[in-house]
Design a protein around this nucleic acid. Structure first.
Length: 523
RNA sequence: GCUCCCGUAGUCUAGUGGUCAAGGAUAGAGGCCUCUCGAGCCUCUGACGCGGGUUCAAAUCCCGCCGGGAGCACCA
């Protein structure tokens, strides 16, 4: 069986890739490593997981597009969903946030779209901003049994007392007062910052943040989905304490940065007498080249310096896809780290290598001539003619394209400069001797012979049908030049390998008179 | 500072007491192939942080140290 899979996998890969033009859903795989992913380590089993009885969730805060760190959580959850034939929920973690960290309306669509393009199937989508009544409903019992209380301390005072391990004056007030004060928070008797609800925990807890943590606070911030409908908002741990149980989550797979939240949720479940899901963590993942922060991107995007969330400099998932990096490569990439708890920084090169393996067998080759120099070939006995070139050197079934050749060509300026006076080969066409200097405008080069010879090989474009092309690099550096004629009509999303240059993806078709733009994926 | 996590080659990762004179990926070197500086094939370089202990036997268990990371909001 395994031997069978490995012999079939090249074709299997190829056929799958042919269908990957758009956001098609991926086929459900059996379990463990899917075909084509022999290199991936098997993930360990989830504690207490039973096939058909696993529910997972992913909970992004909607403040921008998803990045590679998110991808680790998403693909890991998705891998387990597939293994156990379970359910996977997307839960928008869209409570009001804070003045510095706010949800934005466009982010909901951005995230949904990212999931679709990633090929991750969702069983259900929830919005926390729809679930405020649920959160409210579970608080009174906590007040009633004295495990939570309303605190009227100003923020500064709260922090000071917490640091000093001192209780606040309201901590032990009678239940009736607590219930009444809670009603007061909901009805608007207190203003922003004047009252919070806190969980009663050990005031001597070694982690100050854990001492009587805040459960609800008042916020007058406008919410992109529900506006000002609510003014009392739960904090992350409380909303999760409720949702992880009410939505029937069985396993929580989250980043290591959220370990403290486990303890908080468990404290809440203990107070309610509930049993919650199991927690599993994974370390933080960063791509070495992606140094900038999310808030920095927001600023650059707002100012217009960046072209939105798909700007390659953001290293967002959509920016990778825009460059021609397949979602499947990202999936393999993040799954290759397993459930490791180490925080890691991986060079993008590793991701590129995976993508290259994935796309190379099915990506057509084309000539792109950067910094073009016009060259006139003198004495070519074959004269003007049409030549056919294979789209892929190893896959003749991918067909050919036809070029109309005359005596005028564009050659890469750098190569011409470094081979002046030498004989070079225009790849797949003919051999010429370059002149000793770059003087006359169409550079005269004498035809020497036609058959292949072991000479430096240069890519070329017939001047008569050259198309102006630009390639936008990862850091937004622009390389301009000429490409083969049919690149003008390449559909958006088309992948090409520009020979001796790298893999690129065609951007939207340009307006009349504009250069055709491609995004650079990797060498 | 406090709490927690991690420490296998340049970078990731497999490894849960013997089959490890440590496997894979990526990067690097060399060769083959190829009318691309891509892919493919072959070969090579290269690692268990340090010090104790437990054991017949330790990358694997225990302790200490040293390094690295994360968390420590009325953010998520």
């Amino acid at each position: 069986m395994i031997a069978e899979i490995s012999t079939l996998s090249p074709e299997e890969r190829a056929t799958r890739l042919q269908h990957l033009g758009g956001p098609l859903p991926r086929a459900v795989r059996p379990n463990r490593s899917p075909p084509g992913d022999e290199a991936l380590p098997d993930l360990p089993d989830l504690p207490g997981a039973e096939p058909g009885k696993v529910t997972l969730r992913f909970a992004p805060f909607p403040s921008g597009a998803l990045h590679v760190g998110h991808a680790r959580g998403i693909f890991l959850n998705d891998a387990y969903r597939q293994r156990y034939d379970g359910r996977f929920f997307l839960v928008f973690d869209d409570t009001v946030g804070s003045a510095e960290k706010r949800p934005s309306l466009e982010s909901y669509d951005l995230i949904l779209e990212d999931f679709q393009l990633a090929g991750v199937k969702l069983s259900k989508i929830y919005y926390k901003s729809d679930r405020l009544p649920e959160y409210y409903r579970h608080l009174p019992p906590l007040l009633e049994q004295g495990s939570a209380y309303v605190c009227l301390c100003p923020a500064e005072e709260l922090r000071r007392r917490r640091e000093a391990r001192e209780p606040c004056p309201e901590r032990d007030r009678e239940k009736a007062w607590q219930q009444e004060a809670w009603e007061g928070m909901l009805s608007g008797r207190y203003g922003e910052g004047e009252a919070v609800v806190r969980l009663k925990t050990d005031l001597n807890h070694p982690n100050p943040a854990f001492r009587d943590r805040v459960l609800f606070r008042i916020s007058e911030l406008d919410h992109p989905r529900v506006g000002h409908r609510y003014r009392v908002w739960p904090l992350l741990e409380y909303s999760w304490g409720v949702d992880d149980v009410e939505l029937g989550i069985t396993h929580v797979l989250r980043g290591k940065d959220l370990v403290m939240e486990d303890e908080m949720e468990q404290a809440l479940w203990k107070a309610w007498g509930w049993t919650g899901p199991r927690f599993t963590h994974f370390g933080l993942l960063r791509i070495r080249e992606a140094k900038l922060s999310k808030s920095k991107f927001q600023k650059e995007i707002a100012s217009g310096a960046f072209e939105g969330w798909s700007d390659p400099r953001t290293w967002s998932l959509r920016s990778l896809w825009r460059r021609g990096i397949r979602p499947d490569a990202v999936r393999q990439f993040v799954l290759s780290f397993g459930l490791s708890l180490a925080d890691i920084e991986v060079p993008a090169e590793t991701l590129y290598a995976m993508n290259r393996h994935l796309i190379d067998p099915t990506t057509p080759r084309r000539a792109f001539v950067p910094q073009p120099v016009p060259v006139k070939v003198l004495g070519d006995p074959l004269g003007p003619r049409r030549v056919e070139l294979a789209n892929h050197p190893e896959h003749p079934e991918m067909g050919e394209r036809t070029l109309q050749v005359d005596d005028l060509f564009y050659l890469p300026g750098r190569d011409v400069a470094s081979h002046l006076g030498e004989e070079v080969r225009l790849k797949d066409l003919l051999n010429v001797r370059l002149p000793g200097s770059i003087r006359p405008e169409p550079l005269p080069a004498n035809f020497t012979s036609q058959p292949n010879k072991p000479l430096p090989r240069l890519q070329w474009v017939p001047a008569g049908e050259a198309v102006p092309v630009s390639v936008l690099g990862v850091d937004h550096e622009l390389t301009e030049g000429f490409g083969e004629a049919d690149l003008a009509r390449a559909p958006e999303g088309g992948l090409f390998q520009f020979e001796r240059f790298g893999f690129v993806r065609a951007d939207v078709l340009p307006l009349a008179g504009e250069r055709r733009r491609f995004f650079f994926a990797h060498p």
